[in-house]
Amino acid sequence: MKGTYLGEFEELVMLVVGVLHPKAYGVAIKKQILSQTKRKVTLSAVHAVLHRLENKGYLTSEFGEATAERGGKRKKYFTITMAGSKALSMAMETRKDLWSQIPNVALHRS
């Protein structure tokens, strides 16, 4: 269905949010992406995706504690919603399904 579809980066961010649960916030997500996938992303890109996913209802957020290094500003922790987890698993199902249908020959595997 149109709308439940997840972009590649959206999926990645959602997965990382899951990995960091329940302490997923902007900087942590960015670091995690860097360490796990060696991709350098900008903070604003991460924020934009987080807010978009939140608008779609796949993520939810709440303010956490403030720390000294944040200049007294609170962190915003993101968690996956029910709809989000559905969308994630649907994406995985689709991939699995598609993978299973590809004949080995096509992937040059013997």
Binding site: L43, H47, T67, E69, K73, K75
Partner: peptide, 16 residues
Amino acid sequence: ALLEELEGDLNEEYRE
């Protein structure tokens, strides 16, 4: 509404 989160994250990165 989104300012605090952004400023906080920016500050944190700045520190680092």
